[in-house]
Design a binder for these strands. Sequence first.
RNA 1: GCCCCGUUCGUCUAGCCCGGUCUAGGACACCUCUCUUUCAAGGAGGAAACAGGGGUUCGAAUCCCCUACGGGGUACCA
Length: 507
Amino acid sequence: MVVRFAPSPTGPLHIGGVRTALYNYLLARKHGGRFILRIEDTDQTRFVPGAEEYIIEALTWCGIEFDEGPHIGGPHAPYRQSERKALYAQYAHLLVERGWAYYAFDTESELEEMRQRFEAAGMVAPQYNAVTRPYMKNSLTLPPEEVQERLRTQPYVVRFLVPRGREVRFYDEIRGWVSVHTKEMDDKVLLKSDGMPTYHLANVVDDHLMRVTHVIRGEEWLPSTPLHVLLYEAFGWERPKFAHLPLLLRPDGGGKLSKRDGDQLGFPVFPLQWRDPQTGETSEGYRERGFLPEGVVNYLALLGWHPAEEREIFTIDELIEAFSLERVSKAGARFDFEKARWVNQQHLRALPLRRLAELIRPLWESRRLPPVPENSLMALIELARERATLLPEIIEAVRFYYEPPTFPLPDQQGAKLNLALVEELPEWIGELVELEPWTAEDVERFIRRKAEARGLPIGKVLPTLRLALTGDVSGPSLYKIMEVLGRGETITRLERFLAAYGVQRQV
RNA sequence: GCCCCGUUCGUCUAGCCCGGUCUAGGACACCUCUCUUUCAAGGAGGAAACAGGGGUUCGAAUCCCCUACGGGGUACCA
């Protein structure tokens, strides 16, 4: 099996593209096949610098790796279509020789004129086809000498000559049989006047030359597949299997998820941050939002595919094992950011502590938070990961560690203090100094014992202590907080708290 | 407009190919209860869907047709 991902470098890859790449990758790995990256940069006007690098970096971050491509080479190099330009022209001319294509000389304004003329005659969207072709300037209508003359002196395109009266049928691995009559097809340009091929020609030629066995791409290509099928026939090549993936739709129902939707939808549509070189505008990526690549890949896999079992959480290796084209659905899938978050949360919890620490430390440092020793960091992560969905939430959940409370507390919080406990506190502190050892379990035992002895309900004690130590009423286990804070810091904070509130008691 | 593809809970979907086992299953989100010092997480439960209409059949979510709706395509863009 040979599959390929063939993006055009017109901007950042959006998550729909990531999913297409992912499905190709999963299949290649599952069947021990090859996975090719081919850059379809045949539209020079839409080329965006940095886009190719972005695509590779984004897929690498996702754990999607290629066997061949412009960045690693391979037996079918080059892998950028712009570098294969001459090749396509040869094949285009070959089709003309065989009578499957012809030269056309119509200018842009002549094409426009034709459209208007036929529209005036009642046609809805006039195309370059059997009906209009005879009225145009091409090698089928012009005398041979004039054609030769024009070929020497003028720009021209090569158009496909759609055969008449045929039903083109092909089997789509996801949709089943699809058939289109050639009367619905138009004479698509194969070779543009700048000598570059269009998608259709380049794609078919390269897929054949690169021995691609399965063309797995977005549904937007379904309507042009009959043309591709005819091209394989015209060249006399065996055609690959086709599979057209359902599209990723906007959550609000207005069409397919597009690059332009950007973060105005409230969630990223790109895997990585992207800075538009033209406008300087920056779009956030999943990585920057704090998603794990495992989470993104897992959620994306689920959008349009369903495993045979009811499990939903998969590592990429498990996806390779479980994935199959037969279980890909036909209908477009609406993107659900909430579920993406949930899937990410599942992976966050499953990640080894060490790896999490490696991810959190750079975040910690980039926020210029006070230095934290490795063992404390791990302890903090352990505390926070249960209540986090995205990476940065871990850091926010341990705010108490790097940001001690300031006293007096805001009125709203201060109102929740239990003053009876405040009175007891000096004595407690005295005993805490001696508490040995200082673990969450010991601290808990101590607090419970003291509270009981004084007849203070634990439900009153803990919130007060929590406010004194963290300034907040909610968060991770207070005993564990005291453990990571350590005896020294805990007592310091309690004393500072007392200094602020001990006075009030006298009043 | 025309062509192609699609349509099961709000969302992702199972079931459909090979009609009865479907009083339609799971997951996210939502609601209730529970656990808990708190917030989460966890546990238990709940509400929630076969687009509509015709056929075929003893029987249809499943097969056929029509309609509606959604999406895609209709460029010298991919």
